[in-house]
Every structure is written in structure tokens, then in C-alpha cells.
Design a protein around this nucleic acid. Sequence first.
RNA 1: GGAGAGGUGCCGGAGUGGUCGAACGGGCUCGCCUGGAAAGCGAGUGUGCACGAAAGUGUACCAAGGGUUCAAAUCCCUUCCUCUCCGCCA
Length: 415
Amino acid sequence: MIDVKILRNDPARVKANCELRGDTNVDIDQLYADDQAYLILVQEVDELRQKRNELSKLCKEHPEARDQVKELKVTLASKETELNELKAKVDEGLAWLPNFLAPDVPLGKDDADNSEFKLWGEVPTFDFEPRDHQELGEVLDIIDTKRGAKVAQSGFYYWKGKGAMLAQALFFWTQQQLVNKDYTLFMTPCAAKEKTLFGTGYLPFFADQTYSLEGEDLSLIGTAEQTLVGYHGDEILPADELPYKYTAFTPCFRTEAGSYGKASRGIHRVHQFHKVEQIIFCKPEESPKWHQHCQDNAEELFQKLNLPYRVVNVCVGDMGAPGYKKFDVEGWFAGFGGYRELTSNTDLTDFQSRRLGIRYKNEEGKTQFVHTVSSTAVTDRAICAILENNQQADGSVIVPEVLQPLCGFDKIEPK
RNA sequence: GGAGAGGUGCCGGAGUGGUCGAACGGGCUCGCCUGGAAAGCGAGUGUGCACGAAAGUGUACCAAGGGUUCAAAUCCCUUCCUCUCCGCCA
């Protein structure tokens, strides 16, 4: 959510931002007008209330004033109703406004327009036709999508045997790495209520992506970002403790409505995946720094795993409404023969904190919204990249060195 | 799932119809005191919104929503949540 005062003082700026985003369904002129009407009505209502309160105090000594108050209350009631309706309308509009954009966000409409600005590692070469992770998963008997579909639904899958071991090792290792960098590790609920999803910006923008539980005010989380950021909702954080650096490993549930046929081979796009997330709560002026910090962490992980990658500055059209600035790390997938998204790292500025009421007291003692940064550390996709890049002619896969001690093996062989 | 208790400010905890945004205590901030600190003393200390250059004024908020009343933290109804005990259980 953006500050309504920006809309009041500079509606043109809000309008320009929405046009740039191109994905808003809010009529800014109407919203501005509604808000102006709201301001007038607030004053009117406040004055009526004042009058009512004053008269009411007289009633003890002058019972005849009671009739006047009763009369006043009728007018007041209808104005209050009008006020509430207007407020709800304005709030609805505000809820749909996207965040502002960093000045260096590239223009463009989809991921093809993201701008690459960093390349790391050497793309592996093979003297055989490399297989993709789907095929390797079958050959090695470590990914079972068939039974995932039988037991749950198409889009769910099992990690099995050494694959499951490798996955657990990767996730645990990643958490260790972050804890060593002073992150606080969490295990969070895997469900959250609407308020939390709204507050983190997943509602209303990604409503069709969430699994909600029937008959409950609960949805399965799409990411630990929801539960980790929501953790501090309605709190005033002690300034001298910032930044808070949090991490958690959770499953992530997404309906992926409307994405069928979109690069769907293998387990690249699924209903349930697993992720280690980094979340930062910081002072507003420091969010660029912590955004970069999260970026460095993610890249360091891939370097240690020896996964070639590139980093792109995500363009306007490929960035969600809550984002201010976003970098994606795209890893090399030898079987796929190209770079595919591994992680996303977003500076959300005060978009979430304003919705959730997460503040701190600044140097002048003024309460102010913190900034949040939300950044993937690793997901299952990293395992897929490992499989594709580390494969041998016989189909076996070499486990990255850093994970070998945790796995207890250095190679996964065909069964 | 069964039985009971309760939800008030940063925390503890009063308050059962007007003088309550809220006693009292703790904490915290500032000042005095001190060589320094502790103790002690004094003052201050909620949030949103509107108006205002500011000081400030008004308004709303005592879990949420509704009702009674001229007037509600206080009475009534509904919902939610938390805690304790019992049962079941990873």
C-alpha cells in the first residue's frame, strides 16, 4: 500500500506509476475524488460528533437537551454510514494500487525484457546429450511425479531416496549458511489468515494463486515471506535492534491457475515446492543495502554449489505489484539448455509494512514504517539445476562438494 | 471434543453508566543529586484520522461487530481469541 498522502498531494505521480505498471484496475481520478469527498465528510462528521458530545454533557442538568441530541443523532447516523462507505471504497482502491518503482527498473512487459547485468560460472559442456531433471529423476529414481499425481494431484511430486536426502541436505546447509550470517531461523505455520496475505500483498493481487481452506479464514502459505513478515504485524520494533534478519524453510503452495503449458516439464512449476527464505526488516534508508546483502547471500550459495548463473534486473512487467525493485538469479540448466529462474529478491520498501502496521521509532522519536526485503535463498529448483549440470554420461550425478558431508554420499547412481 | 476463567496503555493491574484516554505500580525518557554509578527527588511518557506553520484543537479507539441510553471500558446480544483442567493424539 502506498501512502494516501502521496495520492492527495501528487495524484499525477500515482497515475504515471500505474500507467507504467500497466496492470492496475483502479480509476485514479475517481479514487482521488472519493478521497477528497472523504476528507470533507470526515470534518463534517467530527463536527457533528463534537456537537453531540457537548450537548450530551448538558443533559444531566438540562434534561430538555435530550431531544436535541436525539435529533442530531439521526443526521449523524446517516453521515456516518456515508462516511464508512466512502472510506471502504477508498481503502479498496488503495489496496489495489501497486508500489512505486525504483528509478532503474527496466521497462518491458515480460521476463524477456529483464536486463542481465551479471554472469557467473562456467556453463558445463558434455560429450553426450544431457538429460533434463525430469528424465534424470526417473533414471535415478529420485523424483516421482506419477505417484505425486496419484496421491495428491498433477503438480505434486515426491523426492525419493538419495534425491530426498540431497534435498534435505541442501535446505539444511542453506539454513546453516544463513544462521552463520546472523539470521534468526524459524519454523513457521504453513497456513495464514487473510489479514496476513493481504498485508504481505499477496491479496488481492495473487488471489487466484492461493489455496484457501474451506470454511476457515486460512490459506496455505505461498511462501514463508507471508508468515515471517506477518510475524511483526501491528508492532513497533526497537530501532536499535534493526535490522531483523530472518530465515525459514517451508513448503510453498501455489495453485498456478492459468499457467498450464508454461514450461511445465519436470518439476519447475508445481503446486508445492520448498524454499529457504530470507526476510529483512530494516530502516527505510537501508533497504537498498539489505536488498544487496540478500543478493550477495543468494549468489554466494550458488557459487559454493558451483552452479553457473546470471542475474537479471527484473522489468516492470515481470514484477509483482508490491515490488519496488527485484533481482532474479537464473541458473544454468544443462538439460534444458538455458537459464531459468532460481530465486527472486525483492525490495518491497514500505508496501508491506504499511499494510501490516510494522513500524519503528526513528531518531527523532517519530514512528515510521520499516522497509522489508524478501529474498529466496534456495528452492527445489536448485536441486534440479544440480542434477542437470552435474550429470555424467551414465546418468549418475555428482553431489556438490559442500553437500557431501551432509548427504553421506558423493554420487547418485541409476538404480 | 467436554468443563471453566478471561480479553483494558510498553508491562502488571484498577476501574461496573457521565467528572475515564483511563487510578496505582513497574518500565522508559529528561532533569536534579553524585567524582562516577545506585538509591532518592521532580517532570514527562498511547495510537489513528482531520484541521493547523506550530503550539494545539477536535474526533475515534479499553478484543471485534451490533444493541440499549442524552451518555458505555462499564449494561445486553453475537463473534473471535487466549488461558486452565479433562479426553484424544504426532
